[in-house]
Amino acid sequence: MPAHGSDGAEAPEVNVGRRYLLIGATAALSGVGGMFAAVPFVKSWVPSAKARAAGAPIRVDISRLSPGEMLGPIPAWRGQPVFIVARDSAAVERLKQDNPDLADPASENAERQPEYARNPWRSRAAEVGVYLGICTHLGCSPKYHGEVKPEGFDPDWQGGFFCPCHGSRFDLAGRVVKGVPAPDNLDVPPYSYESDTVIVIGIDEENA
């Protein structure tokens, strides 16, 4: 079960390669009366599983997400898991460089992301990416391999996502590599920033 920040935003697991750290902030409640009074408040901010599947917005606390880490998979939005990735300055610079190995480096397929994500990072902020954790081949969930190091599936791996089902690879912006089964980049869901540390998945600032 995901934890929740003190403002009600979901704080899911952090994936650092193979390490998983549960991120959460628990608020101390004074007295039994205070505890019961807080329950309806928290529930009013956190959508049920049924509501999430129907597309209800999800608020996610990213205050403890460090560069190189990934939050996820976050409980499904519209039945699909969400990945939130924090990129360091080196990763941001790598994504700006031309990469002939990418099938759609400029995100020409407009159906895969909102207009504000048609940039080298495919995100509102270069340092934080938000992607649906579903491979565009047959719907498996890719694994996060954020480090730049040789991998069994790619000796020149520069960090990103690898789908273990059929070998599709995506960079840290969710852009698909040429010659793999996946035909398109990972999808970017609509999202906005409620604050510097809270992302709302399912609501665009433009359409809020």
Score class of each variant (00 low, 15 high):
K178W: 00
R78D: 11
Q80E: 15
V85W: 10
E206I: 04
G133C: 07
A173K: 03
V14E: 11
R64C: 09
P40C: 01
L21S: 00
F41G: 09
C163E: 02
V177I: 06
Y20E: 08
G139I: 04
V39W: 04
I199M: 04
G24A: 04
F161A: 02
Y116C: 12
V42A: 11
G159P: 05
R19F: 08
A51N: 08
D104E: 14
G33L: 12
G167V: 01
A53V: 07
F153E: 00
A56Q: 08
A54H: 04
P142W: 03
L71T: 09
I74C: 12
I134H: 00
A9C: 04
N185G: 06
A51W: 02
T197M: 12
R112K: 14
A117K: 10
P114L: 05
E111I: 08
P57G: 07
N99G: 15
E194V: 14
G68H: 11
P120V: 05
E206V: 12
E10R: 05
R124M: 12
I84Q: 09
G160I: 08
L71Y: 11
P67C: 08
L172E: 11
V32T: 00
P183W: 01
P105I: 13
I62E: 09
D156A: 13
S192M: 15
V82I: 15
G146K: 03
G159I: 02
L65M: 12
K143Y: 02
L172S: 10
A103H: 06
A37G: 03
V188K: 02
D156W: 09
F36E: 02
R122Y: 08
V92R: 14
Y191G: 08
S123N: 13
K50V: 05
D101L: 10
G5M: 06
D7S: 06
D184L: 11
I62Q: 11
T136F: 00
D104A: 09
D104Q: 14
N207D: 14
A56C: 05
V148S: 01
E111V: 10
S44R: 08
W121Y: 15
Y193H: 13
P164R: 07
W45G: 08
